[in-house]
Amino acid sequence: MKRVLVAVKRVIDYNARIRVKADKSGVETSNVKMSMNPFCEIAVEEALRLKGNKLAEEVVAVSLGPKACQDQIRTAMAMGADRGIHVLTDTELQPLAVAKLLAKIAERESPDMFLLGKQAIDDDCNQTGQMLAALLSWPQATFASKVELEAGERKAVVTREVDGGLETLRLRLPAVVTTDLRLNEPRYATLPNIMKAKKKPIDQLTPEELGVDVAPRLQTVKVEEPPKRKGGIIVHSVEELVDKLRNEAKVL
């Protein structure tokens, strides 16, 4: 393959505590550690392995959003991506708008594969890859746990994690693949590579240049804390546990 595009999203770090804003307008993101969405890291790693195995020539990381998203593009380049594309906007982007922007970039870059995380750990939507594939009329393989190339055939064989177990599809390239947890273990960027990444180019675009209306379609009415579970008790023996389950919780 000549080129693999990878989408990377800036999200609250998976270890950070989530605090709902007092006015219920959303989740507090200022003074919170931000990172690359873990599923996107897996997508970057998979693209780099394709390149490492000489199955892809170039890996391009794409991120959309405020200026700070360039941090995540730099991270992808420090891992080994060759260059970056940043679509700058301060508008809240919902998956349909993201998919439209990524589709425009795909038209410009003509990749053989577009790799994305299966979902982002902030909005948990699990939509963008499927929507991108639809807009491009490309085949899709979501929730990938294994990606193999049949280079001569220009096809990818992808194993997917589905409810009952695993399913395998053979996709004609170009195709969209979204990554699940067990696809790989992402590498850490080394210091020399972090330094090198600073010199790699990032193209900057805007939604207007790409001709995409990114206005949110769904209105967030409010964001609230989930109902708290009331504290439980410690039981001291199996007998006591069974007694509680039978006579107090009445679930046995």
């Binding site: 349909l96 948990d124 939507c125 699990n126 939509q127 963008t128 499927q130 929507m131 639809a134 409810d163």
Partner: peptide, 23 residues
Amino acid sequence: SSSFGRNLLPRAAALLDVQPASD
């Protein structure tokens, strides 16, 4: 919101130019 629904619904939604709600 099974692996079937999550795989299918967003694809159809994009073709209908609709932003869907998950889960």
